[in-house]
């Protein structure tokens, strides 16, 4: 009989365990479609961003400019909407411009990193200041409000009880998953992350693959910025502050290796949803903010340790099988 592969299901199991625990502790408040919708809504921006940033992680890169690029693109969409007269068309132009800015920023990152062989950490560390500066200059360092209905609908409109950003997250997750799993480019990304030298020797255009990853990261960051600005109906240089850490944390919790070559989109989304569930649970149980950080840290360690343990067991079993096969040959 085939042995049940626990490691494959450890992440969904952790989420189910969370749902069961919170359902027992706060059945009335937690177990409702509305609450699940709230949880998914609260992680949607991080979820959207991690769907693109995972490409950068997979090639062993990093993007420290997520938060400030998010702010910059949020400012771009709001300012362009105002500039063109606050009409629905202006919103569309603003959205396209912000996405273009995100993609361009990613392309610049990729080009600098691959052409001058500067570590991604340093390049994105520098550009985070540039994006922050640009956001400050564009807004004169003020909060710019935008209550144009066509714009606020992006973050507030609901379809079947779920807000639009949740659908954005799901669509982005499916697209990213498809690219990584079902296309040649996706296999190249894993190959470059696993061993870029070997990939280059085997004919993969490493530079092109890498630039593509940064472009995708920039695009999803811009989309996150647009959605966040729409949710809060405003943009400023501090829009999205703290999101760099959140996105990286979601990825790492979801099993994405920052060294490259390892990680999946469902894993990264799991990381984001786990963080959302945790925050939601702490809020619903009225855990005071002075204790919330402590509880959050402990729960994340337990959840990630459980997941890692399952994977370690699976790896050992695989190794044993390989060894047995070797002995029999």
């Amino acid at each position: 009989m085939k042995e049940f592969n626990w490691s494959k299901y450890s992440k969904p199991l952790i989420l189910v365990a969370f749902v069961v625990i919170l359902s027992i502790l706060r059945p009335k408040a937690f177990l409702s479609l509305n609450n699940f919708s709230n949880v998914l809504w609260s992680v949607s921006v991080i979820g959207i961003m991690v769907c693109g940033t995972i490409f950068v992680f997979l090639i062993g890169g990093i993007d420290l400019s997520i938060a400030t690029l998010c702010a910059f693109t949020a400012v771009v969409v709001v300012e362009i909407t105002h500039l063109l007269g606050d009409t629905p068309v202006a919103v569309c132009v603003g959205v396209v411009a912000a996405l273009a800015v995100g993609a361009l920023a990613g392309a610049v990152h990729g080009l600098i990193i691959t052409t001058f062989h500067i570590p991604a950490f340093l390049v994105t560390f520098a550009t985070q200041s540039i994006f922050l500066g640009l956001a400050m200059v564009l807004t004169n360092n003020k909060i710019v409000s935008c209550t144009v209905p066509a714009f606020t609908a992006i973050g507030a409109m609901k379809i079947l009880g779920f807000p639009l950003p949740v659908y954005f997250m799901l669509v982005m997750a499916v697209i990213s998953w498809f690219i990584l799993r079902k296309t040649v480019y996706g296999r190249y990304v894993y190959a470059v992350g696993g061993n870029s030298m070997a990939s280059a020797i085997s004919g993969i255009h490493v530079k092109g693959v890498s630039i593509g990853c940064y472009v995708l990261s920039g695009l999803t960051t811009a989309l996150g910025g647009i959605v966040l600005a729409s949710m809060t109906q405003q943009a400023s240089s501090s829009t999205g502050s703290g999101y760099t850490n959140d996105v990286i944390t979601a990825g790492v919790i979801g099993g994405v290796s920052l060294l490259g070559g390892e990680g999946t989109v469902p894993g990264a989304i799991f990381g984001a949803v786990l963080m959302g569930l945790l925050n939601n649970g702490l809020n619903l149980m009225s855990v005071p903010s002075t204790h919330a950080g402590l509880v959050k840290g402990l729960v994340i360690i337990v959840a990630v340790a459980f997941d890692a343990m399952q994977h370690a067991d699976q790896s050992k079993k695989k190794a044993r099988k390989v060894k047995k096969r070797g002995e029999s040959v």
Binding site: A29, F30, S32, N34, N35, N38, S42, N280, N283, L284
Partner: peptide, 8 residues
């Protein structure tokens, strides 16, 4: 997010 939890 906090307000959503309160409402819930």
């Amino acid at each position: 997010t906090v307000m959503n939890s309160f409402l819930q």
